[in-house]
Design a binder for these strands. Structure first.
Lengths: 226, 226
DNA sequence: ACCTGTGAAGCTGTTCACAGCA
DNA sequence: TGCTGTGAACAGCTTCACAGGT
């Protein structure tokens, strides 16, 4: 067994925990900026909107990085969470679709700052190709495969219209990309080795509408019943 | 007991089910457009990427709308799912922040088409106020409260920079909005009566990075072990 | 024969409550 | 005393497998 690396802990971190780590990380980075050296699970839980026991259990999956009676060292925890999330290395991202959404993504500050480098912003529309967006020049979708290989793209972002999404996804997959972030309102078909995450604006609205309706119905019943 | 309304079923639909209903709805609408009158749970599950038993259980929460031996009537199911999600009525939406993301949202076709009307697109920057976006004129954030009251806004969308988000949210809440969709990378503080959903682009990327790293580590171990 | 609707089992995630350490 | 780390109980979700209509 090689022994130079510190025990990177069990790989079996629950999905639910993984989804919360970025939230903790952001809060911790803000604490660093404000020069706060230490934080308790109770306080960190409050600022991130979770239960403190849950937060402790989440962090315990990475290792025992807290000190009983004191709390967590902010800077150390930032490093450990970053490492666990794979943010100590850089990830190359290609964004396909330079419409409103693609441009918004390219301009989104959070990308560059946190270990994500936008290698390319591509579009199929000749009128859009050549435009400058966020320090990038929009290039044509034709070169998708070249970009993936030459720049070592490991995450593909699909910000195309729904009709084009599956085609773009297939090209990503054939070129070797195994992580896809999909903003198009379609269910993508991929081999099981490929990881797809979906962000769907209208679904979020519909979920809100459901709850809004329930609140309205509840009030109406409340008037009838009491 | 009043009897004119059809039994709208138990209000206790699981969150996980609610989150999938919009996906089913989209698939069903596409079936309607293609003139397909009937679909089995197996087929609908395949196109939406879920397990067929899960789909049946999800739909069973709305009522018994299928026919054994046949499947589900597409048009009828579209109606029932729409009704359950509250999409048979219109919801007024106000988008705050007319930067790249706000404009992308305003231009997003899925909004208007599915029972969501954009009542206003507001921004705090005087240079942006007055611009035309997707048939709307950007107005100043100052009138947020007026818009909410006058137009009957029930869903507020926050597409501002992080620093402005909590302030905008507070104003929404004070004006009576109880559903908020937040795109800013902050945890919003709201009273428990208010429903907040969050969409965070960089969190999605970080989750992908975690899995990408795990795949990479796995390969590396594979090389060492075998 | 076919397909829905659902009890039951199993799994994942959350919360409680406290042992154990600083 | 204060706070972490965690077993144990609990709650919610998924999947299986099949009873029960058509």
């Amino acid at each position: 067994m090689t022994s130079s690396t510190p025990p990177p802990k069990d790989r079996g971190i629950p999905e639910a925990t993984v989804a919360r780590l970025p939230v903790y990380l952001r809060a911790l980075q803000s604490l660093t900026e404000r020069g706060i050296p230490t934080i308790s699970s109770e306080d960190l839980a409050a600022t991130t909107g979770v239960n403190s026991a849950k937060l402790r259990k989440d962090l315990s999956h990475l290792g025992s990085y807290g000190t009983r009676g004191v709390g967590y060292d902010v800077e150390y925890l930032v490093y450990q969470v970053s490492r666990e999330l794979g943010l100590t290395q850089d990830w190359c991202v290609a964004i396909i679709g330079a419409g409103n959404l693609g441009r918004a993504l390219a301009n989104y500050g959070g990308f560059g700052s946190r270990g994500f480098r936008i290698a390319a912003l591509l579009d199929a529309d000749p009128d859009v190709v050549g435009l400058g967006v966020a320090g990038l020049t929009v290039r044509h979708t034709d070169i998708l495969e070249d970009v993936v290989v030459d720049e070592g793209v490991s995450i593909g972002v699909i910000a195309t219209p729904a009709a084009a999404a599956q085609g773009v996804c297939d090209r990503f997959v054939r070129a070797g990309v195994t992580s896809v972030l999909n903003f198009a309102p379609v269910v993508l078909n991929v081999p099981p080795t490929v990881d797809v995450r979906k962000v769907d604006l209208s679904i979020e609205l519909q979920i809100l509408a459901f709850h809004a309706q329930r609140k309205a119905d509840g009030n109406r019943l409340g008037l009838l019943d009491g």
